[in-house]
Design a protein around this nucleic acid. Structure first.
Lengths: 174, 174
DNA sequence: TCTACTGTACCGGCTGGACGGTACAGCGTG
DNA sequence: CACGCTGTACCGTCCAGCCGGTACAGTAGA
């Protein structure tokens, strides 16, 4: 389920994300990333000229994954809403990891990173809108997804949360 | 509306939060905090022996504010749910600032900070549960609040979000 | 009331360590 | 032997924490 380590470059991006997710932005130093990827610091800097460059590479991959996800959402057999809520709780997918990593980065690199995150959100909202034809409901469902996601990011995952939400949404159904 | 600068200690805590909120955790260095509060670094370290100590002071104040807020929620004239949702979008209150500051801190100081945030969430949920007598709805509303809050923290506030949520909740009302 | 002493609040320079980034000397493979 | 890539030594910067010192208010004793 994880991106295969095709190249040293991929290994470096995976290592960067892993460190961001598991230990936070402070721990994701160039040396730590290189070590995690099994490469020297010089080796890392050969592939990414600077830390900013590493961030750019991460965001680029995030956007690619997010657009694939929006497409998967559209064509999901259980419907976009169900798909969206289910995948808002951390599934351990590549996209999850990329999102959490980006959220961590957003604390420092405000501009670029939060722009990328906003882009991802907009892609999802677009699909919800198209499916529901109801702006208020689409927004509310996105907020619930944000909430689920926020709890995961904050290290307070709640396995029952999804059930409760589905129970409440069921009452709206009719 | 902001905590008065009664003492140098208060000024330091306010300065720390302000820097965390406005410029992120990297910018909130001891020197920067001291400068913002109008004291020297030595002066800061007189009041808070270490940066960890500064974090502890911030969390302590957060918990105090949060318990006051839970009480205000219980006794709000418009009801706890309305109060909770309204104050989930950033109102610029002391509690807001303390929460955003804590969220920023949670990126690095995983343990203590997220424990404090979990405590705050639990206090709110308790009030929602007591009011609604409906676990699923209480949880869902808290998730929506989390979503509203998350968007603010991420620098993507949406002034219309609250209206949409109220519109949807209205449909549940009957 | 003058003096000696104490505790509180604060200052600013220093140090050791970590981090981002650079330079350069290898090393294997085609 | 040339090129793609790796590893290491090093530099400048920044930061947390420490420390010697200052100012001053209060107090107690003669």
């Amino acid at each position: 389920m994880t991106t295969p380590d095709r190249s040293t470059r991929d290994r470096l991006l995976n290592a960067f994300e892993a460190l961001l997710v598991q230990q936070g932005p402070r721990a994701a130093t160039l040396e730590a990333v290189a070590a995690e990827a099994g490469v020297s610091k010089g080796g890392l800097l050969y592939h990414f000229a600077s830390k900013d460059d590493l961030v750019d590479g991460t965001l680029e991959r995030l956007l690619t994954l997010a657009h694939q996800d929006a497409e998967a959402m559209r064509t999901s057999s259980s419907g976009p809403v169900q798909y969206y809520l289910e995948t808002s709780v951390s599934t351990g997918s590549d996209l999850d990891r990329a999102l959490v990593a980006a959220a961590r980065l957003a604390q420092d690199n405000t501009e670029r990173v939060s722009a990328a995150l906003a882009q991802v959100r907009e892609a999802w909202l677009e699909v919800l809108r198209a499916e529901l034809g109801d702006e208020s409901l689409a927004r509310t469902i996105q907020l619930i997804g944000d909430g689920l996601y926020f709890n995961d990011v904050s290290g307070m995952p709640d396995p029952d949360a999804l059930e409760h939400v589905q129970q409440v949404l069921g009452r709206l159904g009719r």
